[in-house]
Simulated scan of single mutants.
Amino acid sequence: MTRAPTPFSGRVIVGFDGSDHAVRALDRAADEAARRGTSLEIVCGWPWGKHPLPDFGVTDDTGKLLYSSARRMMDAATERVRDRAPQVAVSESLTTESAARALLRCGRDAALTVVGTRGHGGFAGLLLGSVSLRVAAHCTTPLMVVRGDNGDEHHRVLIGLESDADTDALHFAFQEAQRRACSLRVLHAWQYPAAPHGSHATSYHLTWDELEHLRKGAEAVAQYAVAPLRETYPDIDVHTDTVCQQPGKALVEASRNADVIVLAAHRRPRRVGLQLGPVTHAMLHHAHCPVVLVPVD
C-alpha cells in the first residue's frame, strides 16, 4: 500500500516581470488554471529596490514612473489572461517583497506555481538565476518551470522516478496525465556501481549473476511503484521504462517527446542552505519541455 499523497489545492500562481519568457510562463499558467478549474494570481516582486512604492508616501518622481509602468504591465498581463482563458478568475499582486520571497509566500497554498526560464528586473536570472533557484530549493508546493522551445504536442506526461519513495510526484504525474487526457511514461534511470579507486580497484568486479540481479532490481522499481496506482487511475495509459544510463542525460533526452516532465524535488541540506540535486539541475538547464518539481518531505 502506498502512502496517501500530500494534498495540493488552491489557485495557480505565476511570476511575471514583462519579459518574453515571463509572457510564455503567463500563457502556460493561464492554461494550467483553466485545466484545473482554479483561479490565477499574477505576482510581481517590486523590481526597483532603490525606488520604494509611492503608495508608502514616497514623492520620488522616478519611483512614481516606475510604479505606473509596473501597474500598466500587470494590467496588460491580466487582459492577456482574460483573452486567452476567459473562464479563469485572475488577480494581480504587485508587492514590495523580493520576487523569490513573494513567490514562496503566495505559493504556500497554491496548486501550482509557474515561472519562466529567465527574466530581468525583479526576476533577474529567472531561471537559471538566484531567484528561481531559491524558489525551486524552498517551494513547499509544486513548481512548474516553463522551458523548452518545441511547441509540438506529444500527448504524454513523463516522470523521472528515482525510487518508489517518490509517492507525491508519482501521484501528481498520474493526475497530470488525467487532466491532459494523455499517456504517462514512468522512467527509472540507473547505473551500475562504479569501481572504487585506489589499491583495491583492480580486484573489484561483479559476476554476471550479480549484474543480472542489479538489472532486474532496477526494472522492478517503476513497476512496483506504479502497481498500486493502476487501479486508482484505470483510464491512464501508463508505461514503465528502465534505462541503464546517467539519469540526467536519460531524462533530458526523454523530455524531447513529452509535454511536461515531473520530478520529485530532493533538496539536500548544505552549509549555504538547501541545494537541489544534480538531476534536477540538469533538467532545469536542459529539458526540452516544462519541468514540474514536486517537493519531497
Rank of each mutant, 00 (worst) to 15 (best):
E219I: 07
T207K: 02
P228A: 12
G151R: 12
Q246A: 13
A136F: 07
H205M: 06
G198M: 00
A194T: 08
V131P: 00
G125D: 08
A194N: 04
C182E: 07
V226Y: 05
H155I: 00
V238K: 06
A222M: 11
A137G: 09
V131N: 01
L206I: 01
P247N: 13
R134P: 02
A195W: 01
L187T: 04
L143A: 05
P196Y: 02
P247F: 13
Q175E: 15
A250H: 09
L229M: 15
K216P: 00
A218L: 09
S163K: 10
V145T: 05
V238G: 08
Q178I: 03
R134D: 12
E212V: 04
E162I: 05
S132D: 03
A169W: 09
P234W: 14
K249W: 08
A194Y: 04
G248V: 10
A225C: 11
R180G: 07
G217A: 07
A225T: 07
R215E: 15
Y204F: 14
H205F: 14
A177F: 05
D152G: 04
A181Y: 07
T140E: 14
Q175V: 03
Y224C: 07
P234C: 10
E210N: 06
H154P: 03
G151S: 11
K216T: 14
L127V: 12
W190M: 05
P247W: 11
T140W: 06
R156T: 10
L143E: 00
L229A: 08
E162Q: 15
D209L: 08
E176K: 09
G125Q: 07
L143H: 02
K249V: 15
R215M: 10
D237E: 14
A181W: 05
H197R: 04
E253K: 13
E153S: 14
A225S: 11
V243E: 13
G125Y: 11
G217H: 14
V186S: 07
D237V: 10
E212A: 12
H239P: 00
E253N: 12
G148E: 03
D235C: 05
A220G: 09
R147K: 13
S199F: 02
T202S: 11
S163W: 09
D235Y: 09
C182P: 07
T207L: 09
G248P: 09
D209Q: 14
M144R: 01
V145C: 07
D235F: 06
D237L: 13
V238S: 12
V226F: 06
P247V: 13
A169P: 10
T167Q: 13
P196I: 01
L206C: 01
Q246G: 10
G151A: 14
S132R: 00
A169T: 12
R185Y: 00
V238T: 15
Q191T: 08
G248H: 09
Y233I: 10
G129P: 03
T242Y: 03
S130V: 06
A201L: 02
H154M: 03
Y233W: 14
S132P: 05
A177Q: 06
D164L: 06
D164Y: 09
G125M: 08
D149M: 08
L187R: 02
I159Y: 08
S199T: 04
H138W: 06
H239Y: 11
H171A: 11
Y192G: 00
S132E: 01
L184T: 04
H205Q: 06
H155W: 08
E231T: 14
